[in-house]
Design a protein around this nucleic acid. Sequence first.
DNA 1: TATTCGATGTGCT
DNA 2: GCACATCGAATAC
Length: 205
Amino acid sequence: MKNYKPLPLKFYLRDSITVSRELLGKIVIRKTGKNILTAMIVETEAYVGEYDPASHAYMKITKRNQIMYDRGGKVYVYFIYGNYYCFNIVSERKGIGNATLIRAVEPLEGINAMKKFRGATKNVYDITNGPAKLCMALNIDSSLYGEDVTEKKDIFISSPLKKKNFEIVISKRIGLNVGIDYPYRFFIKDNPYVTKHKLNKEIIL
DNA sequence: TATTCGATGTGCT
DNA sequence: GCACATCGAATAC
């Protein structure tokens, strides 16, 4: 917490593919009650409103997706399948409709609290290796809708305190029936907290 | 080990 | 009504 500083707004005012890629290895800092939770982003997906049929911003503005059309750095949380939340960060300037879905993170600090938010899990890798799982672990719900990750408040994103080297792998996105051919999923090679999926083997680069 | 399926709110047709 | 950026338990092999 102490030394973490939110990434500047200009980081998010770029296309969501670049932002998704560069969010890998960054740190999410989440303050909830007395808990400070931190985790490294290890897997993301990009959604592009203008031409991407899988994006929630593909059709038109609704109450649910309106924040995607705001400027970069805003938090987009949506509720899906009647049970789960997913955590997104808006990119680009106002009016575009791009966002990055955070699919998996690696817990750093506050692991015990994350376990408590998640309930019973078999091993540490299952705590945050999925978009709805990490929302449970970090206590993310619709009350964070519209928050700004460039402000040092309940949730923000920082560069890591120590730089780590890693390889980025690109694949197709997971869990879609439309827009499946776009290679907009990015993850850190060999990181055990990345979603287990057969697409992990269909490496494009 | 791999695949299927139920739970379930919200927005679109 | 139906599809959906999911999870995890149950079932099939």
